[in-house]
Lab assay of single mutants.
Amino acid sequence: KKYKIKVYVKDKKTKKWKKIKEIEVDTKEEALEAIKKLPPNYEVKIVP
């Protein structure tokens, strides 16, 4: 079972969220580790 991490950042001009990358991992633990490495201003969604 794979997890997709969708990473969004808020556009300063439009104030809208835009997706900047998608990370695919195998476990939820890996997903949480990957999220920890991202800057705090990123919004993250984990999709099972």
Rank of each mutant, 00 (worst) to 15 (best):
residue 20 I to H: 05
residue 31 A to T: 04
residue 30 E to M: 08
residue 32 L to A: 13
residue 28 K to N: 09
residue 39 P to H: 07
residue 29 E to K: 11
residue 33 E to I: 08
residue 44 V to A: 15
residue 8 Y to R: 00
residue 43 E to D: 07
residue 9 V to Y: 08
residue 16 K to A: 07
residue 8 Y to V: 01
residue 43 E to C: 13
residue 46 I to W: 13
residue 1 K to V: 12
residue 29 E to N: 08
residue 20 I to C: 03
residue 39 P to Y: 06
residue 21 K to R: 12
residue 15 K to V: 02
residue 14 T to Y: 05
residue 45 K to T: 08
residue 38 L to K: 02
residue 42 Y to C: 13
residue 32 L to Y: 13
residue 6 K to F: 14
residue 19 K to D: 01
residue 23 I to H: 04
residue 15 K to M: 09
residue 39 P to C: 03
residue 46 I to L: 09
residue 48 P to H: 12
residue 14 T to R: 08
residue 16 K to E: 06
residue 13 K to F: 13
residue 18 K to Y: 07
residue 28 K to F: 15
residue 39 P to N: 11
residue 40 P to L: 07
residue 16 K to V: 05
residue 25 V to R: 03
residue 23 I to G: 01
residue 4 K to Q: 07
residue 5 I to K: 01
residue 26 D to T: 10
residue 33 E to T: 11
residue 27 T to P: 00
residue 21 K to F: 08
residue 11 D to P: 02
residue 5 I to L: 11
residue 18 K to H: 07
residue 5 I to M: 06
residue 40 P to H: 11
residue 41 N to D: 15
residue 22 E to V: 12
residue 22 E to R: 00
residue 14 T to P: 02
residue 11 D to L: 04
residue 36 K to V: 06
residue 31 A to S: 03
residue 37 K to Y: 06
residue 19 K to H: 05
residue 11 D to G: 05
residue 3 Y to P: 00
residue 38 L to N: 01
residue 23 I to L: 12
residue 2 K to C: 08
residue 43 E to K: 15
residue 18 K to N: 06
residue 41 N to F: 12
residue 16 K to C: 13
residue 45 K to L: 11
residue 14 T to V: 03
residue 18 K to L: 06
residue 3 Y to W: 13
residue 13 K to R: 15
residue 21 K to W: 06
residue 39 P to D: 12
residue 37 K to T: 11
residue 16 K to S: 05
residue 18 K to W: 08
residue 39 P to R: 06
residue 16 K to D: 03
residue 20 I to L: 13
residue 21 K to E: 09
residue 24 E to I: 09
residue 3 Y to A: 01
residue 27 T to S: 12
residue 21 K to P: 01
residue 42 Y to V: 13
residue 6 K to I: 15
residue 42 Y to N: 06
residue 47 V to Q: 07
residue 28 K to S: 07
residue 41 N to W: 10
residue 35 I to S: 05
residue 19 K to L: 12
residue 8 Y to M: 02
residue 33 E to R: 07
